[in-house]
Amino acid sequence: DEDSERELEKLRKNNASKEEIKEVLKRLGFSEDEAKKLAEKAG
């Protein structure tokens, strides 16, 4: 959803580590696997 998109955008701009991105995604309700895949894509 839009909030998670914004959250990811912010992380990308701040050069967050894949680990940080994954944690945020998991907080947003993604499964471990989904979060890992998305973090890879974002990283």
Rank of each mutant, 00 (worst) to 15 (best):
R6T: 11
K13T: 10
K22G: 00
D33L: 05
A16C: 13
K37R: 12
S4M: 15
K22S: 03
K36F: 08
G43Q: 11
K41Q: 13
K22M: 14
A39L: 13
D3L: 11
D3W: 14
L28V: 01
E34S: 03
L11I: 07
N15R: 06
K18M: 15
L28G: 02
E23D: 10
K22A: 06
V24K: 09
S4E: 08
L28F: 02
A39E: 04
E7G: 03
E40W: 00
L28R: 01
K36E: 15
E40L: 00
K22I: 15
A42I: 15
K26E: 14
D3T: 10
S31K: 03
K22W: 09
K10L: 08
E9Y: 00
F30P: 00
E5H: 11
L38C: 14
E5G: 08
A42H: 15
D1M: 13
L38T: 06
R12P: 05
A39G: 03
S17C: 14
E34L: 07
D1N: 12
R6Y: 09
D33W: 01
A42C: 14
E32H: 01
L25Y: 01
R12L: 15
R12E: 09
E23K: 03
K13H: 09
F30V: 04
E19P: 02
G29L: 00
E9F: 00
E20N: 04
K36H: 12
N15E: 08
L11A: 09
E34P: 01
K22D: 11
L25D: 06
S31G: 06
D3Y: 11
S31N: 07
K18W: 15
L11T: 08
E34K: 02
R6G: 08
D3Q: 11
I21G: 01
N14L: 08
S4T: 15
K41E: 14
E40T: 04
V24S: 11
R12W: 04
D33S: 07
E34H: 04
L11P: 05
L28M: 13
E23M: 00
A39W: 03
N15Y: 01
K36I: 14
R27V: 04
A35H: 02
E7P: 02
K26I: 15
E7M: 14
A35G: 03
D33M: 03
N15Q: 10
R27P: 04
I21E: 02
D1P: 11
L25Q: 01
L38Q: 06
E20M: 09
R27T: 06
L38V: 08
E9D: 09
D3H: 10
A42R: 08
E20T: 08
R6S: 12
E9M: 00
K37I: 12
E23T: 01
E7R: 05
E9L: 00
S4Q: 10
E32Y: 00
E34N: 03
V24W: 06
S4I: 15
K18D: 10
S17I: 05
S17Q: 05
K10N: 13
S17N: 06
E32D: 10
R27D: 10
K18S: 12
K37Q: 10
R12M: 13
E34M: 09
K13V: 08
E2S: 12
V24D: 07
E9P: 06
F30G: 02
A35I: 13
K36W: 05
L25G: 04
E32T: 01
V24F: 14
K22C: 11
E32S: 01
L25A: 05
E2P: 13
S17K: 05
R27H: 09
E32R: 00
S31W: 02
R6P: 07
D3E: 11
K13D: 10
S17R: 05
E5N: 09
G43R: 09
R12Q: 12
K13L: 05
K26Y: 00
S4D: 09
G43Y: 15
A35L: 06
R12Y: 09
A35P: 03
R12S: 08
K10Y: 04
D1E: 11
D1R: 14
K41P: 08
A35W: 07
A35N: 02
V24M: 14
R12C: 15
I21H: 01
R12N: 08
E23N: 06
K22E: 15
E2W: 14
E9H: 02
L25I: 06
K10E: 12
K36M: 14
S4N: 09
A35S: 05
S4G: 09
E23G: 03
E9V: 03
E19Y: 00
S31M: 04
L8I: 09
E5D: 11
L25S: 04
K41D: 13
A35F: 06
L25W: 00
K18Q: 13
K13W: 03
K22R: 04
N14F: 00
D3F: 12
S31H: 03
A42K: 07
I21P: 02
A39N: 04
K41W: 10
L11S: 07
A39S: 09
R6N: 11
E20K: 10
K37N: 11
L8G: 03
V24P: 02
E20V: 08
R6Q: 08
K37W: 01
E19D: 10
L8H: 02
F30S: 01
L8C: 14
K41R: 11
S4F: 15
I21W: 12
K36P: 04
K22Y: 15
E2M: 13
E19Q: 07
S4R: 13
E19N: 06
V24Q: 10
E34C: 13
F30W: 09
I21F: 07
A35V: 08
E7S: 05
K10A: 10
A42N: 14
F30A: 02
E7D: 08
G29F: 00
E19V: 03
E23H: 01
E23W: 00
R27N: 11
E19H: 06
G29H: 00
K36R: 11
S4W: 15
E2F: 13
G29D: 02
E19K: 03
R27M: 07
E5M: 13
L8M: 07
S17H: 04
N14P: 04
R6M: 10
E32G: 01
E20L: 06
R12G: 09
L28E: 03
D1K: 14
